[in-house]
Design a protein around this nucleic acid. Structure first.
Lengths: 236, 236
DNA sequence: GTCTTATGCCAACACCATTGACCTTATCTC
DNA sequence: GAGATAAGGTCAATGGTGTTGGCATAAGAC
């Protein structure tokens, strides 16, 4: 890298932009989030972000290691927002449920951004804080370490994976505004019933369900299975 | 669209390329898959694909509605490969397990391609065939329609979501070749133990587990929970 | 053998990320 | 306060990208 990036907390001299804006990592990420919301997930580019900030595009490279670095910072911001204000109650199952829904929800609050970041593991501080919280809940609940680690892994990946998937659907369907009915008409309803009997038989139910996230159901199934396992462990 | 795309089965005149290649949707998708494997998920471009096929980049627009259409076709191909050769045994739980692992595996066989496609729902024939199969297994097993639809949705989305997430990790870690040990060193191991006691306590277990997919565990938990629900339904 | 038109090719457009050289000015030292 | 240092802004250029409109040629219908 020709121009090494200075870490945010080591930054001393903040020279204002020609247009008078004083930049910061924070300001850039927030502006990027707003641009993503307004122009869609393909609407973020160094040039446009620079223009929105009143700065030359190349300035961004003083703050992030390329667009990819900026993407990771956005992901870190989202996961942090999910965690903000959360605290454990001591009831492991509802704590986990709450945490999962918060993380998922934080990403879905910015679908266009989530599409870019949700399937990226960053290893940054706030992401690690989430990991620590989940492991803590499970170990405190009485899961032995091997089980705790196994369930933690399934839980956290499930949350992020669904966030990415659901964000994709959300960002897309907002782009092409089709009503639920139209969605149904355009896909399942016109399938031949003799070739796809099961889809035909459950058509209405499918149409009603496929427009929502499956994450809450999948999460509850994971938690139910974890609880059964814990009781089996206690029983013997 | 200025130049409407002719559907593959309506194609009559197949004029060979200047370099003697006869194009087809099939050939283009297969070539794209090979390019993705060799050059990574960012290595697919109209120009490079054209060069690899011995054709002008703009020719691709006769076959696909832009690069996005090509991406969807690639996804359809992958899910089809997962289904090829599969048939139901009648044991619903192992059938679902097998199907999930096959779909997940088909995507992970081409991680660089899966990154682009796994979180995209195409509504194309082979994807719908997978939906029909899953619904069929659940309804035949005795799940009432509302339950069947609910579990189907969680199952299929979870499979695709994990495929996308795991593909991302796989495509990335192949790019930056770090051994498992190094991965561990570079992230968890250097965290202060007093601030992250749970991560510190389970460090070795985490390091061993995080390099594999959590999908099998998550899948088995979903199936276990489904089975419990089925027994509860039968019981009353 | 002639006609039609599907399909491949060419040239051009507007965008993109990234980099290296340059210059200005905020901050540190004395 | 004066001067030195270099952080952090700007400019210009490079080589990439998807996509389109116009053109020409050969494949297949008759």
């Amino acid at each position: 890298m020709a121009k090494p990036v200075v870490p945010e907390d080591a930054r001393r001299r903040r020279r204002p932009t020609r247009q008078g804006v004083v930049l910061s990592e924070r300001l850039i990420v927030d502006t990027a989030l707003r641009m993503l919301r307004e122009h869609g997930s393909a609407g973020l580019s160094a040039r446009r972000l620079g223009a929105a900030l009143g700065a030359d595009p190349s300035t961004l490279y003083r703050y992030f290691d390329g667009m990819d670095g900026l993407t990771l910072a956005i992901g870190e911001e989202l996961i942090g927002r999910g965690l903000d204000g959360w605290s454990a109650t001591g009831l492991w199952r509802s704590d986990l449920r709450e945490l999962g829904l918060r993380i998922h929800g934080a990403y879905l609050a910015h679908p266009q951004a989530a599409v870019l970041t949700a399937s990226r593991v960053t290893g940054r501080p706030r992401e690690i804080a989430a990991d620590e919280a989940v492991l803590g809940i499970l170990r405190t609940a009485g899961f032995p370490d091997p089980e705790a680690v196994q369930i933690y892994h399934a839980f956290i990946d499930q949350s992020l994976a669904f966030a990415a998937l659901d964000a994709g659907a959300l960002a897309l369907s907002e782009a092409s505004r089709l009503s639920d009915e139209q969605q149904w008409e355009s896909t399942y309803a016109r399938l031949p019933a003799d070739e796809y009997p099961h889809i035909a038989a459950t058509g209405r139910l499918l149409a009603a369900r496929m427009n929502h996230s499956a994450y809450p159901v999948a999460l509850d199934m994971l938690l139910a299975s974890a609880e059964a396992r814990l009781q089996a462990l206690r029983g013997r």
